[in-house]
Structures are given as structure tokens and as C-alpha cells.
Design a binder for these strands. Structure first.
Lengths: 194, 194
DNA sequence: CAGAATGTCTAGCGTTGCTAGGATCACAAC
DNA sequence: GTTGTGATCCTAGCAACGCTAGACATTCTG
């Protein structure tokens, strides 16, 4: 009886993940407005109500996709930082990786940072993946830098602004690289600027 | 017969504006998700189809509200800049005014910069109100500053990032002022920094 | 093998954006 | 003053949305 229960829970967990990745694939292929509970149910080859046995509603599914995304973003940022150990190059590399993530996975990024959410960010119950991503920015500044957390917040915010405005065509895409250089140059550690 | 036609067009224009302001008021009072064509129609005391005789759809109404907003934002930024003629204080004042606008009129701001749109920004057919707002940022830098347009873009983007992330609770609200100070200090004209 | 529990689906509710069709009104011409 | 014409507006309805109740089937338990 225990084995049966275990198998069921395993299957259930698999299906849980299947729903998340199906939602994500659908969103990345056709945008979030194409992700309806009906289409999603059809995609995972179950009826609509099973979605609601896994998630409290559509928003919860989006949230799950977003949390998945936080993990991936953290990995990308970490790789970028570790590949450039010198602090002078760490910040540009991480920023570049961030913008690359945002432009290459627009739907995922939107779920993470644009769509309404109740995920708490700078908070006790912040998903650890998100905190990890943030820490990669913090780590671009020397430990003795005063207010490096605030610095990281502002850099993150600026990148987010660049990402979303260029994504929606509100700022030209072609000068993306120049904007990034400018931003980095202004926020590089004071000790090694100019 | 001409007088009649003129009166009708006048009435029609009034109603056009009435729809826009009703949509805006409703959004500011209860958020955009509460702005449905039915509620909006009821609010302007007409039936749904008249909305569609004025606008191509709900998106077009949102767009009209957004363009209204661009005009107001430009006025606010201009006031802030003119009230602080010294270049050293112009940038902080304009940035502060921008963030104030975003936090005080969140629904309006959302229509302008977050909701999907096909308004072209850095483009020939950019609404002049938007260009005017952007120029206020440009005007915070001395005319001989190299790449001041790019500078203005990045500052704008950073402010947008701060505004949206704090709006959705993705960044703590209470250190808003510090973030702004930090941003401004990094982007103040090189000639008068430190 | 009967009964309980679990899992899944069909069907449907209320709401959304949007539109087709007919009713109603004001005006123009005779 | 009456009748035709055109614009104006509303009722009613469509398809799709998120979500849920209740029936059916399947599986495990005693």
C-alpha cells in the first residue's frame, strides 16, 4: 500500500512539472495571452479540472513558471560571474547575461517580473532562487563597498527597465549594447573607475 | 444643415473624451482589470457598441488614456526642470517628479509603459507628448554632453525599472529615496561630480 | 466480493471582448 | 404636413475565458 501511494505521488509530481513546462512552452511559443486553461489542459492531455487539483488557479501556474525561471536566471548569472573572476569584468558580464536572458526568454521573463504576482522579493519568504540571482549582482561589488546591496538593487532595476522598455519597443533595440556599456561604466566600482 | 453637423461632431468629440476619462478614472479607482467594456459603457451611460464606434477596441481606449498620460507626464517633468534651473539640481528634480508621477498615478503609468501597446516611441510617428517628456530628461544634461540622448534613455530606463519593480512589490518601497539618490549621483554630469 | 476512497471527465456557470440586426430618432424634400 | 432617408443607438447573442459542481469510473481496503 505504501508502494502504491509512493508511485502515485511520483506520478503526480511528474504531472505537476509537466503542467508547468507545458505552460512555459506554450507561453514562449505564442505568448501568455495564448495560455488558456483549455489549451493547457489539451496540451497535457488531461481535462481542465486536473489543473485545479494541482494549482489554485491560472495565476498559480504562472507563478510556478516564474519560480522555475528564477532558478535558471540565477544559474546564468552565476556562470557569467564565475567566468569573469576579475571584479572589473564581472559586472558587465553579469549585466550582459541578464539582458540576454530577458531577450531570449521574453515570456519567461514576463512571468517573473512583469505579470502581477504575490511573490515576495526582499522578504523572509523570498524564493531562494531569486535571492541567489540577486546575490550575483551583489557579488560584483567588493565586499567592503558601502551600500552594495542598494547598488545591486539599482543596477538590477536599471537592467529591468532597459529590458522591458526595449522588449515592448518603447526604446530602440539596436543601441542596446551602448546602453549597457553606459550603465556599467557608471556603476563600476568607484575604486577602479576611469 | 452645416450647423447641425457641427454640433453633432462637437458632441461626438465630447463623448470621445468622456470615454477616455471614464476609463482612466475607473482604472485609477479600481485598476485596469476592473475596466470592462460593460462597466465602462454603463459609466458613460451608453451601451457597449458606442464604444466601438469611437475606438477600434478596448486596446485603443487604453492607448488613448496612455497618450493623455504622456501629456501630463511631460508637464510634470517640465515643471520640475524649470523650477530648478541649475543643471546640478535639474536631474534630481526631474527624476523625483518622474517617480512621483509613477507612484501617484499607477494605473495611468501602467497604461503608458507596461500594458501592451503599438505606440512607437523613438520613431517618426511618436506622439509629440512623449517626445516632449523625453526631451526634459535630455535637457538635464548640458548641450555639449556627448551622447546625452543615450544618457537620457538609460536614466529613463532605470527610473522605469525602479518604478515598476517597487510598484509590484519586487523591491522594497521604503528605500526608494536612497535608490534615487544613488542613481542620480551616478548619472549627474561628469563635469560637476564629486 | 462489497464498500470506500480516489481520480477524472462532462457539463455548465458567470463574465469577458466584440458584433450583427433591428428599432428609433432627427432631418430633408416635396 | 407628410413621407422618405440616413444616422444613431440598443437589444441580443457569439465564442472564448477562468473556474467548479456533480456524475462516472477506477482502484484500493477489509
Amino acid at each position: 500500500m505504501s508502494a502504491v501511494k509512493e508511485r502515485r505521488e511520483r506520478e503526480r509530481a511528474q504531472r505537476h512539472q509537466l503542467i508547468i513546462s507545458a505552460a512555459r512552452e506554450l507561453a514562449e511559443a505564442e505568448g501568455w495571452e495564448a495560455v488558456t486553461t483549455r489549451r493547457l489542459a489539451e496540451r497535457v492531455e488531461y481535462s481542465q479540472p486536473v489543473l485545479y487539483s494541482h494549482f489554485n488557479g491560472k495565476d498559480a501556474i504562472v507563478r510556478a513558471v516564474a519560480i522555475d525561471g528564477f532558478g535558471e536566471l540565477a544559474v546564468q548569472l552565476r556562470q557569467a560571474r564565475l567566468a569573469n573572476p576579475e571584479p572589473r569584468q564581472a559586472l558587465p558580464a553579469v549585466c550582459r547575461a541578464y539582458l540576454a536572458f530577458a531577450t531570449e526568454r521574453p515570456a519567461l521573463y514576463q512571468a517573473m517580473f512583469v505579470m502581477p504576482t504575490d511573490v515576495k522579493f526582499a522578504h523572509a519568504e523570498t524564493p531562494p532562487q531569486l535571492r541567489a540571482g540577486f546575490d550575483e549582482f551583489v557579488g560584483c561589488f567588493p565586499p567592503d563597498t558601502p551600500g552594495r546591496e542598494l547598488l545591486a538593487e539599482v543596477v538590477w532595476s536599471a537592467l529591468h527597465g532597459i529590458a522591458t522598455l526595449s522588449r515592448s519597443g518603447r526604446v530602440p533595440l539596436d543601441s542596446q549594447e551602448e546602453r549597457l556599456d553606459l550603465l556599467v561604466s557608471r556603476f563600476a566600482s568607484r575604486s577602479d573607475r576611469d
